[in-house]
Design a protein around this nucleic acid. Structure first.
Lengths: 176, 176
DNA sequence: ACCGTCATGTAATCGGTTACATGATTCT
DNA sequence: AGAATCATGTAACCGATTACATGACGGT
């Protein structure tokens, strides 16, 4: 039970386990794929190291199955819940870098219309995914924490803005 | 001159050096602070390792001062320019994760109004910074590559969207 | 009984961050 | 001349990605 620094990834894992507990790493992976994967990357291999780290730090309890797959079931400990609550109650004050490689390419002189073509496709697909998920949440609101719907709405708003921006840029001539 | 993978950071360094060459690492740091720092994090320590890596890979030429600070001056080599051009001409196809910890907190049930208060401050400050820089670019457009102005406009659009979104969320009751 | 996919991991590597350090200029 | 800040780096550490691997389960 050492005092390690917790990353955003740590809190995502804690937050997902809070909703699922008891949860296997695979359960976490599944829920992440449905919910937070759009907002935060979380490859499955990291879930194994991260849950182990968190259990080591005393924020998760681990219970291992005897037979079969010998899966590990995790739950929040009291201090795990306290850490999650503290994180949740603290506002975010570092300004975030929201940018993408496509904007960097733009800055360094790439052709806006060329970038826009692919960006529009990508963001349309992303927006469609969000809207589908939003419809599912709206159909069964009680299955999901309310905050998830709000986060999704932020995502939808951002995607729409990206589309407006790139559609405008699609009409620009090359910058150089 | 080994074949290493180039990261987005590598291309940012190449792109900045293209505009400055010959450039010392410190010059790169200064220009980054004025231009790309908003879109891509680039601590000065990484510039030293990254320029060394790029020089090692044959994408930058390095010339060292004899006296004084023994500064290293870098220029793009032909293959450096080719690598940068190739990157610039290739569209970005992986969908990007644009999200911030604040949206994750929202998803996991933090109070929207509490988060919004700080987010609004942060994004207002960021927007003001962008607009100030945009005014400077507009006053002396020839000093800057045209793409920089476009990238800045994307940033401005996104910040305005964030402000609209968070101002709306500021009126929400807590999600749990 | 076999096969594909589901599920569960381990280990090496590496980019990026953090901590530390010191010489060169400039200012008073 | 001394102090402050500018400029230039080195090195340890660590989270995250990538590559690899294998056992369990369900269907035919």
């Amino acid at each position: 039970m050492s005092t390690q620094r917790l990353t955003t990834t740590s809190y995502v894992v804690l937050g997902l386990i809070e909703q699922l507990q008891p949860a296997t790493t695979y359960d976490v992976k599944q829920l992440a794929a449905l919910s937070t994967a759009n907002f935060w990357a979380l490859p499955h291999t990291q879930l194994y190291t991260e849950t182990a780290r968190l259990a080591d730090a005393g924020l998760l309890s681990e219970e291992r199955e005897d037979g079969g797959r010998r899966r590990r079931f995790y739950r929040l400990t009291d201090s795990g819940r306290a850490a999650l609550d503290a994180w949740r109650e603290r506002p975010v004050d570092e300004p975030q870098r929201i940018f993408e490689p496509s904007v960097l390419k733009l800055a360094f002189g790439a052709d806006p219309a060329m970038l826009a073509e692919r960006q529009i496709e990508t963001h349309e697909r992303q927006l469609a995914g969000y809207e589908e998920l939003a419809a599912a949440l709206d159909a069964a609101p009680d299955d999901w924490p309310r905050g998830m719907r709000l986060a999704l709405q932020v995502g939808i708003d951002m995607e729409r803005q990206f589309l407006r921006t790139w559609r405008e840029l699609a009409r620009r001539p090359p910058a150089r």
